[in-house]
């Protein structure tokens, strides 16, 4: 459903990233980690297409949910101009979300850049288990506060491309070095496709399991227009699935079947 929702707060998380809290009871109570909302960034039809933005947190009792986004283009630029009290047209919650099993005792999340946001929600909802968090950014300026991860008592590993914070290099290098990617009940991956493919490859070689949240340019956001197609290799053969409705979360080995 699409809703007329009220912006509660806007916070500049870091350089170009914003956290928006939105009051909308239905979405707040239904949202699961890995799902997203499709947002109309301009009320006066300056932009035709909505922008899919992952849900970073949700508070069912308070009736609010959070989205975080980085200003990359016109849509997110317009969105960053919203102020508390403004009304926002959002469709959601959309997509399948991460699968999480109550029996899991140890998980890892591997995120790159804005891919950290949906993983933050997962960390918050996964309860009192052991969680290793691997976060990779371009530089220290881009490192964003993630309350779920910070308050969750996780083991946090950080990398930046320029070495301005944490390990200098890719987060997948840290993931490979500091642990056995196979020791987790599940590894959750979200970020640039090269990072996701590399991380999934490491998990595969170590005999573990992983889920990957995929990113693709979308049209309708609900599975009708088939714009955001993703090739998935399953036991039934190679299928074309929609990232927006069948995904955005897929079995890591189905989207990256022949890693390395």
């Amino acid at each position: 459903m699409n809703e007329n929702a009220r912006v509660v707060s806007m916070e500049n998380l870091c350089k170009n990233s914003f956290l928006m809290r939105i009051e909308e009871k239905r979405i707040a109570s239904l949202a699961r980690p890995g799902q997203f909302v499709n947002v109309l960034c301009s009320r006066d039809n300056k932009l035709l297409l909505r922008r899919p933005i992952s849900i970073m947190d949700a508070d069912a009792s308070g009736g609010t949910f959070d989205i975080a986004f980085e200003v990359r283009g016109e849509g997110t630029r317009l969105l960053s101009g919203f102020r508390p009290g403004d009304m926002l047209d959002v469709m959601g919650p959309l997509g399948n979300g991460f699968e999480f099993n109550e029996s899991y005792r140890r998980i890892a999340v591997v995120g790159g850049g804005i891919g950290i946001y949906p993983l933050n929600f997962l960390v918050k909802r996964s309860g009192d288990i052991e969680i290793d968090v691997f976060m990779g950014y371009r530089c220290s300026d881009a490192v964003m506060p993630c309350r779920g991860i910070e308050e969750g008592g996780c083991n946090v590993y950080l990398s930046t491309d320029d070495g301005s914070a944490g390990h200098r290099g890719f987060i997948t290098e840290v993931f490979e070095k500091n642990n056995a990617p196979g020791k987790y009940d599940m590894v959750y991956i979200c970020g640039p496709v090269q990072m996701a493919e590399r991380a999934a490859g490491l998990v595969r070689r170590a005999g573990g399991r992983c889920q990957v949240s995929m990113e693709e340019r979308m049209g309708c956001g609900i599975g009708a227009c088939l714009v955001c197609s993703c090739e998935v290799k399953t036991k039934d053969g190679t299928l074309r699935k929609t990232v927006c409705k069948d995904g955005p979360v897929f079995d890591g080995f189905e989207v990256f079947p022949e890693v390395e």
């Binding site: 932009l47 035709l48 297409l49 693709e216 340019r217 979308m218 049209g219 227009c225 088939l226 714009v227 955001c228 197609s229 993703c230 090739e231 074309r240």
Partner: peptide, 23 residues
């Protein structure tokens, strides 16, 4: 039909381009 490879969509002024390719 599987359709074309992605990206299949690009927003343009007051419009959009698609190249789904009859999936």
């Amino acid at each position: 039909r599987a359709g074309n490879r992605t990206p299949r969509i690009a927003e343009t002024p007051a419009g959009m381009l698609n190249s789904v390719g009859l999936q």
